[in-house]
Design a binder for these strands. Structure first.
Lengths: 345, 345
DNA sequence: TTTTAGCACTCTAATATTGAGAGTGCTAAA
DNA sequence: TTTAGCACTCTCAATATTAGAGTGCTAAAA
């Protein structure tokens, strides 16, 4: 679905409209554009071109005699073709890294990262924790806690430490659990969590029969654990920043947005979808499948560990968002997050 | 600082003003009160009494010719002397318990509880996790994760499972860690986390010298762990409910409130203070030490495990809050939370 | 053919004006 | 001590008014 290229003059004007509107949050008039372009064109000419742009759907009128406002299609064209690339100085990058490294454990790092996104973009920031199933097992421990319950502690290469409290119909003795723990650690270190099952199954076949019972119990423990591995954690910060934007001035929109934010899971769905594709992506207003997102845009990126996508992060704000700046922040923060996580391995 | 008792006629009128205003969110006039009291007094009489109540500081005028609005002092008198006791039916209590029990681990229980508070009171709900230091040790595990790092897993009687990633200058061998783990579990089970240090110290004296080195290492591990035990987790839900209240209609108040909510820690401070005293407490508007809380009230309660205060929960909303209802919900939910936690031990 | 100046026209948003209504405080009678 | 009556105050909603920003169109200029 490629968009037709706009002639360079049109592009200049569309770009100016988008950037001015992003900055001012107010409809942009022909006069203002002429000034911004140093009167290379007269306001009248610009009015003509704007009429064309409007007909093609890149901009609109809120009412007959106001300036122009970009449509979602206009923002999209801007993001795809016009947006200048912003770069952070090495100094700024260091600053960001220093702040993220200050986190003790992974949940602190995730929190700091989403706060950082929120602060630097002046929008809401969201970071999805590394996906368990896409991480590799580093260490596993089974602890008997009585009551037919076993605590499984999973430590992954992504730095995640996950506790799973498993309940069983029967009791496993402490020494039996230890044997199973040893089995797991000996056989499964470095294996992707999503593969553990398959992997252990193969192993079993090639092994001698004496440990069959061990394997049987190991499987039933894994089975119980796998049910609880799906949950996706995430950190969401800075919602207030978008609530105070002028587009959410009226009570009704605000209330709807508040409900949306309270039910944070929706954002997660979008990020989860994006994890399938590489690179930075913008979801602009109506492009979002959920209709509640109409007045919102998301800019998302993935992050990797050992070259594999394990998580996603992004920024949420009104469609009138400083895309160039947000893209650069999201890109850099995701890269920095990767290096912070890798370094902790 | 006892307040003078109001004569019963005054009390009736103050009570009616408070309750009507809580319901309607609009200044209450003499006529309305007369109607609510079945014209036992004429509007004129009520006006006289209202003038007295105003002089004594229990109510105010927003402007010359509007009805009356309770002041913080008025709410306080209502809460202390006039508020009827609301009771939940056994049916409702069961409902609540069922919902809270559905939580898998403690963090789910905390989340469900704060959601419940928010939903039942139509305000924001906050629940502080059981305080680690006030819990007793059930099991401890030390896991070598390489890189001079040891993962300490603490399981407490409150159902909390806490991971502490400890870094040391030197490496501990796996077998050495195992010995220390065994020492901990043998000596410290059932001891309050805040006492562990002291307890182990006493033990050491009475023990023979052969394990001295073990104790030395045990102490240095505990020292490292204790630094990280302070953090207090909590769950905060339903902020949106209070944002849509009419008192936060104007942009300015709303923005301030949003900032307050984003910086959730402040609420925690108040709850933490309250943990020192037993019982349900209301913090009404200006009574709060933080001036940002002027338009807000909190109703808080503690919850216990094995008879000891380990955490707190509460409800946050505008000063115009249905105190009678909120008190009953907070009281019941805290009791139910206690029994849910006890049952999991 | 393309660009621009000029001008009438449109619509908003801010401000002022008005009137109705709710509720008070005061006074004097019950 | 309570109540009826009344003048007075202040808000809120509705209406009118105006300034100004910006457009679209037409006709002239490049």
């Amino acid at each position: 679905m490629r968009r037709v290229d706009l002639k360079s003059r049109k592009e200049k004007i569309l770009g100016t409209i988008v950037e001015t509107y992003i900055g001012e949050a107010e409809p942009v008039g022909s006069r203002t554009i002429a000034r911004k372009l140093h009167f290379k064109f007269s306001p009248a000419t610009i009015r003509n071109i704007m009429a064309d742009l409007e007909e093609e759907g890149y901009i609109t009128h809120p009412y007959t005699s106001a300036g122009r406002v970009p449509t979602d299609k206009g923002y999209r064209y801007y993001v795809d073709h016009l947006m200048p690339e912003e770069r952070l100085t090495p100094q700024e990058k260091k600053e960001i890294m220093r702040e993220m490294e200050a986190g003790e454990d992974i949940s602190e790092i995730m929190d700091k990262t989403s706060r950082l996104l929120a602060r630097l973009c002046e929008e809401a920031g969201i970071v999805v924790y590394p996906c368990l199933k896409k991480s590799r097992l580093k260490h596993i421990e089974l602890i008997d806690v009585g009551n037919n319950s076993v605590l499984m502690v999973l430590i992954t290469n992504s730095g995640l430490i996950k506790n799973l409290l498993l309940r069983f119909p029967q009791t496993y003795s402490r020494s039996h659990l230890e044997k199973i723990t040893n089995l797991f650690n000996a056989e499964l270190e470095g294996v992707y969590l999503s593969e553990i099952w398959k992997y252990l199954w193969h192993k079993r076949l090639s092994d001698d029969f004496s440990v069959f019972n061990l394997f049987k119990d190991a499987f039933s423990i894994l089975e119980e654990a796998f049910k609880k591995l799906e949950e996706e954690r995430f950190s969401f910060e800075g919602a207030t920043q978008i609530l105070t934007q002028p587009e959410f001035e009226d009570r009704y929109t605000l209330t709807k947005l508040l409900q949306l934010i309270e039910e944070r899971r929706l954002f997660l769905d979008i990020l989860a979808q994006d994890m399938e594709e590489e690179g930075i992506k913008a979801h602009i207003g109506e492009e979002n499948s959920y209709k509640e997102f109409r007045p919102l845009s998301l800019v998302t990126a993935n992050y990797h560990i050992e070259g594999k996508v394990v998580g996603a992060l992004g920024v949420v704000g009104p469609t009138r968002m400083a895309y160039a700046h947000v893209f650069s922040i999201v890109k850099n923060v995701s890269e920095i997050l990767e290096s912070v996580l890798e370094r902790r391995l």
